[in-house]
Nucleic acid binder design. Structure first.
Length: 421
DNA sequence: AAGCACCCCAACCGCACAGAG
DNA sequence: CCTCTGTGCGGTTGGGGTGCT
């Protein structure tokens, strides 16, 4: 699609979002869901293109976003995931709940790259810089090129044009070489039991990655390298120096999964993100520090991933605003007590109040720490079904089931890929 | 205080892909 | 099939902030 013709036909706003625009978008999506993004700006009364709205929601307004600096564990996890996945930021982000691909990408480009270089590690290959410099004189392998697509648009195109995920590249290795890794023998990474053509979710297939599959990839194979070479001192649960033999990545979704002796529908369920109402935070009672425009909305509240939203209107007495001239922010909890934050409003972006764990913690005393969950973005189906935003949690279970299908498809693809070798 | 360079990050751009018609 | 539209992703950009001289 590329350039949005809509942006030219109409005079749509570009650039930074104003608080008013954020407010409109947030209010619209929390009430109706995003549905078709292209129709969101019109419905929400925004002079933006749908793509811009989507981006704003995903990267900034989503209530489940973590704000603030990355922890060391998060950084380590990013590094390790990047070693496996390359610049697939969205998949890396999927492993860091509350973080966006954009955020991780920015962190990578601004900080982590630098840190790795300081440690003598090439951020692209995750190999020692000396080794990379020596290897530069040799003809680069295809895989290395694919995996090192930073600052090279053509590589991006190539990577996409190749049509395959890294999963397929990973598997389509040269069998002709002695010791080639393409044959999915037991030693080479996966054992397949059952018929490959059958559906993955009927218990007739068992895909069992052996630990050698990931750990023993030679460094010249499709750009991947032995994970045991890595040592970032991680505490992130993915320590490759002392790898948890039961923790593996699905190369398509990159979600770690338990390596069981068999991979059936039961085991698939174990790799699903833990999305259940049990992990969702209890009512937080944090009112968005914006004054939602009064209209005919019901004065009820709803909880969105732990963020309590009040829809104003008749409850306008409790509404507060964060206008540009304001010097204080009022937050409410469920008991209608308020928290006032003195200071320049510019110091904290209004939406950060939605996500700031500290402020969230301050809003209630006995709340649970907001737990990250996957798949929080409401899809249109969640809203279209009943037009209500109060069934947010009820939908989590449905999402989990949908996710199950997705992962089942991943394994189907994996099995298909193996079958092609 | 002014000028400059650098950094960070929000947002944009361009592409591929999927699905509908 | 082909075209069109919508979506998602990764690379890039530009503006604001910050630190240094």
């Amino acid at each position: 699609m590329g350039r949005h013709s809509c942006c030219y036909k109409q005079k749509l706003r570009k650039g930074l979002w104003s608080p008013e625009e954020d407010e409109k978008l947030l209010r619209h999506i929390t009430k109706y869901g995003h549905g078709c993004w292209s129709s969101v700006p019109k419905q929400a009364g925004l002079q933006r293109c749908g793509k811009s709205c989507r981006l704003r929601w995903i990267n900034y307004l989503r209530p489940d976003l973590k704000r603030g600096t990355f922890s060391q564990q998060e950084e380590n996890l990013i590094i390790e995931l990047h070693a496996v996945l390359g610049n697939r930021w969205s998949q890396i982000a999927a492993q860091l709940p509350g973080r966006t691909d954009n955020e991780i990408k920015n962190l990578w480009n601004s900080c982590i790259k630098k840190k790795l270089r300081q440690r003598g590690i090439d951020p692209n290959t995750h190999k020692p810089l000396s080794e990379v410099e020596n290897g530069d004189e040799k003809a680069p392998t295809t895989a290395t090129t694919n995996n090192n697509n930073n600052n090279n648009n053509s590589n991006t195109t190539n990577q996409k044009a190749s049509g395959g995920s890294n999963e397929l590249k990973f598997l389509k290795v040269d069998n002709s070489k002695p010791g080639g890794l393409g044959v999915p023998e037991q030693k080479s990474g996966f054992s397949i039991e059952g018929s490959l053509g059958s559906k993955i979710n009927n218990n007739s297939i068992s895909v069992t990655p052996t630990k050698d599959f990931f750990l023993d990839r030679p460094s010249d194979t499709m750009g991947y390298f032995p994970l045991h070479q890595l040592n970032y001192g991680s505490n992130a649960g993915l320590s490759v120096n002392n790898p948890n033999p039961s923790l593996w990545f699905n190369q398509e979704t990159t979600r770690p999964f338990e390596m069981n002796s068999e991979f059936n529908s039961n085991s698939i369920s174990t790799v699903l993100p833990s999305v259940s109402t049990s992990i969702l935070p209890t009512q937080l009672g944090l009112k968005p520090p914006i004054s939602l425009p009064s209209d005919n909305l019901q004065p009820d509240s709803f909880n969105l991933n732990g963020v309590q939203y009040w829809e104003t209107g008749t409850s306008s007495t409790n509404s507060s605003s964060i206008s540009s001239g304001s010097s204080s922010i009022e937050l409410h909890n469920n008991n209608n007590s308020s928290f006032w934050f003195e200071g320049e409003p510019e110091d904290i972006k209004w939406s950060e109040y939605l996500h700031n764990p500290f402020l969230m913690a301050a809003s209630t005393q006995n709340q649970q720490t907001p737990q990250p969950i996957y798949n929080e973005i409401k899809s249109e189906t969640q809203f279209i079904n009943d037009g209500s935003s109060t069934n947010w949690h009820q939908n989590q279970q449905q999402q989990q089931l949908q996710a199950s299908d997705i992962y089942a498809k991943d394994f189907q693809r994996l099995a298909a890929a193996l079958g092609q070798i």
